[in-house]
């Protein structure tokens, strides 16, 4: 079985601060990490490698520095790593990103594509599903579990707001995975020692199969109008009360806060 895991390098948003004057992110000194949902997905792939001898390729699009998460993925056990990097990919929104990734995936063999549900910097959850659409693949999103029958069928547990769905899908397909699905393993010391003597393949526009119009800034219909920090609100309280009693509670709370 061949698995491709799409991963993204993101700023560690738990360490991020916002400049209150400008409302922009202070990126300085913020470490870059592998996106947590992607890491959960990679762990799922590594389990399939152990159980079913799967071959794992990790694929990322980003600037040359994104190399470090590929080394991290190889240290965890990935077999092959590809970095999509080209000036023509720059300024991509989710649509242009998914086109570039799909362009690379057209050049690769796979039975399963795994992506994280969403990245902690953009939180859109769009790239995985968009890739599936571009490639005409069945997709199952928000996985919290996956198993393989050893032949061609995956059994998938998909998290929903109300509970979960138990589904089956045949290879090839694309799934998006939650970070909470798996506790990702630590990089192996041996993997770390060997990581920088292994190859990370660098692919540019020439190596992938996609229409240039779909890439980079010009392939990106999304425009960011404004970025701002959300005002902090104190959490509300829920009361279960009859209308007459409820009125009293509301009045007293409003008075408490000097609103009335």
């Amino acid at each position: 079985m061949k698995i491709i895991v799409c991963i993204k390098q993101v700023p560690d948003t738990t360490e991020i601060k916002i400049n209150p004057a400008t409302g922009t992110l202070i990126r300085e000194g913020v470490p870059s990490i592998m996106n947590p949902d992607d890491k959960g997905g990679l762990e799922m792939a590594l389990e399939l490698k152990e159980k079913h001898n799967a071959h794992i390729t990790v694929l990322t699009m980003g600037p040359p520095q994104a190399d470090s998460i590929l080394r991290e993925a190889m240290s965890m056990g990935a077999d092959r790593a590809i970095l999509l990097t080209d000036k023509r990919f720059a300024g991509a929104d989710t649509l242009a990103t998914s086109h570039a990734l799909a362009g690379a995936l057209r050049k690769l063999d796979f039975d399963l594509i795994i992506t994280g549900r969403q990245a902690i910097d953009g939180d859109t959850a769009q790239v995985g599903p968009q890739i599936a659409e571009h490639l005409g693949l069945p997709q199952v999103t928000y996985l919290r579990d996956l198993s393989f029958d050893g032949n061609k069928t995956f059994t998938l547990t998909r998290e929903t707001e109300e509970g979960y769905q138990l589904l089956e899908a045949d290879a090839p397909c694309l799934v998006t995975v939650l970070a909470s699905a798996r506790k990702a393993r630590y990089m192996r010391v041996r993997g770390i020692v060997e990581a920088y003597s292994r190859d990370v393949e660098i692919w540019g526009f020439e190596q992938i199969e996609v229409n240039e119009e779909f890439l980079g800034l010009k392939g990106s219909p999304t425009q960011v109008k404004k970025a701002f920090a959300k005002d902090m609100k104190s959490p509300g309280s829920v009361y279960e009360a009859e209308p007459e009693e409820a009125v009293g509670i509301i009045i007293s709370k409003l008075k408490e806060k000097f609103i009335i």
């Binding site: 991290e72 240290s75 990089m187």
Partner: peptide, 11 residues
């Protein structure tokens, strides 16, 4: 530190 040492420290 080398890149390998930095990766190791992270882990």
């Amino acid at each position: 530190l080398s890149k390998t040492q930095i990766l190791f420290q992270q882990m």
